[in-house]
Design a protein around this nucleic acid. Sequence first.
DNA 1: CGGGTAATTGAAACGCGTCAACCATCGTGG
DNA 2: CCACGATGGTTGACGCGTTTCAATTACCCG
Lengths: 257, 257
Amino acid sequence: MAKALVRSGDEVLVSNFGLADRLDKWVSLTPAERATLSRLEERPRAIRRGTVLMDEQRRGEELFVVQQGMLMCYVLLDDGSRQIVRFLFPGDLFALSALIYGRSPDTVVAVSNAVVCPFDRSQIGVLATDHPRLLSLILVLNQIERVITTDRLAGLGRTSARARVATLLLSLRGQMRQAGMAVGASFAPGLTQEEMGDAIGLTAVHVNRMLRQLEDEALIKREGGRVHLLDEAQLVREARYIDRFEGLDLSWLPPGR
Amino acid sequence: MAKALVRSGDEVLVSNFGLADRLDKWVSLTPAERATLSRLEERPRAIRRGTVLMDEQRRGEELFVVQQGMLMCYVLLDDGSRQIVRFLFPGDLFALSALIYGRSPDTVVAVSNAVVCPFDRSQIGVLATDHPRLLSLILVLNQIERVITTDRLAGLGRTSARARVATLLLSLRGQMRQAGMAVGASFAPGLTQEEMGDAIGLTAVHVNRMLRQLEDEALIKREGGRVHLLDEAQLVREARYIDRFEGLDLSWLPPGR
DNA sequence: CGGGTAATTGAAACGCGTCAACCATCGTGG
DNA sequence: CCACGATGGTTGACGCGTTTCAATTACCCG
C-alpha cells in the first residue's frame, strides 16, 4: 500500500509513477510510444527534501519528469516574499520553460523526498518528429496546467482568503489523486502553513485562521498533519473548485505510432 | 502606417498579422509550413467591439487565430466580479482549451473591433503529424503564455496595487509590440480602468488612484486615452517586469518540412 | 531532555474596497 | 447644432479584510 507523502519522514515512498502512467489514463500507448517515454526516465535521481533542483536564472538544458514525491516551483520577490506558482507530483513534467528560455523563470525545490528523471531537451525534438501523438499529449498536459494556473489567477485576484484555502486543499488532493497516490477520506498536504500561504497569496498567520475557521464550522478536520474534508460539497461550492483533469476530449489526437 | 487600437473608433485597423507572421520572427518557415498555416486563417471573420466569441461553458469545436484587434478572456465569479485572465493580440492563438475540454473555461470578448479566423481543431492533429516543427512552435507559444500567466500570478499574490498597474502597462505595450502594432513613446491601452482592475485584481477606483500616483510622480503621462511611459527604467524596476518574448532559445526544434 | 521549527492566538496598523458624489467625454436624436 | 443621456473618470470618507508584530504553545528530531 502506498505510504502517502509525509513531510517529516525520510522514507522513500510509493512505487514509481511516470509520464507513461499518467498518459495511459487517457490513451492506450503503443509499445513504441511506451519505449520512447521510458527513455526519458532512464536516469532516475533520488533527492532529499529541500533539494534545489533549479535556481531561478540558472541555465539548465534539462527537462524533468517526476516519479515520486512532491516538489514546488516558486519565485522570490525583491522584498523577500515568495510566490509558489505550482506543485509537482509524480507524472508531472517540469522545466519545460528551460526548453525555451535558457534559464528557468522559477526555482524548483523538493517538498518531500522525491525521485526525478532528467532528460535532454533534444528529446522533445525527437518526440515531435517520431511521435506526434506524444507531443500532442504534452501539449495537452501543458494546456491543462495553463487552465489550472488561470483558475488560480482568478482565485488570487478575486476571491476571499477562506475560499483560497479551501481551493488549495481541494486542488492538492486532486493532484495527488491524479498522480496515483492513495487518497482516501483524509490526506496529508505535506506543506507548512507558510508554504500554503505562499501558494495562495496569504500570510501563514491568516492561513492558520482560515483553517481554524473551516474546522470550527466542521468543513474540515485536522489531525497530525492530515486533513479530512468533512463537507466536500460545501467546500467545492465555496472554493468554486473545478477538476481540470476531468472531462477531457482527446478525440482529435493523431494516431499513435 | 498602422493606426493603433482606438477603442472608441469603428474604423478597422492595420494590415493583417497572423500566426505565420508571429512565428516568422523566430524561425524561417518553409513554403509548406507557410501554406499549412495560411489554411488556418482561410476564414477571416470581422467582429465588432463587444462581440462575445465564446461563452464560458459553451461547447466549441473551433480554435481561433487573431489577425487584427484586441480581445480579452475572462471568468465571471458568483458574486458578479470578473477576472480577466488574458489579453489577445494579432498572431495569438486562442481557445486551445476548447481543444481539450469540450467547453471553454472562460469567455472571450472583443475589446476593439477585430478580425479572427476560426479553424477546426482537427487541424491540430494534422499539424502534429505533418509539421512537427509547427506543433513544437505552438508548444512554445503555449509555454510562453504559461510563464506570462505565472508572472501575473506572482504579481497578484505578492505585489502592491501600484506595481500591478505598472506591470499591466508594460505588458500591454510588450504584447502590442509583439503583435506588430506600432508602439512608440506612447500607446493606447484601449481599456477602461474597470477592465484594467479586473485584469490585475483591483477596483477601478484604486486603479485610478494608482495611475494618478504614477502620473504625479512623473513616471507616466496620460492624455486622451494614450499613455506615455516617462521613466521606463523605474517602472520596470517597480513592476519587476520581464519581457517573456525575449531571449528564446529554439535550437532544439526539429527541422521544418 | 533540549533546541528548533511550526502552529496558534491576540492586538494594532494599513492597504484596498465600498459607497457616494461629481465631472468629463462622446455619441445620439431632436 | 445644441441638449441630453450614458458611460467612464476622478476624488473623498469610511469600513473591512488581511497583514504585521509579538508572544506563547505544540511538536518533532537529535
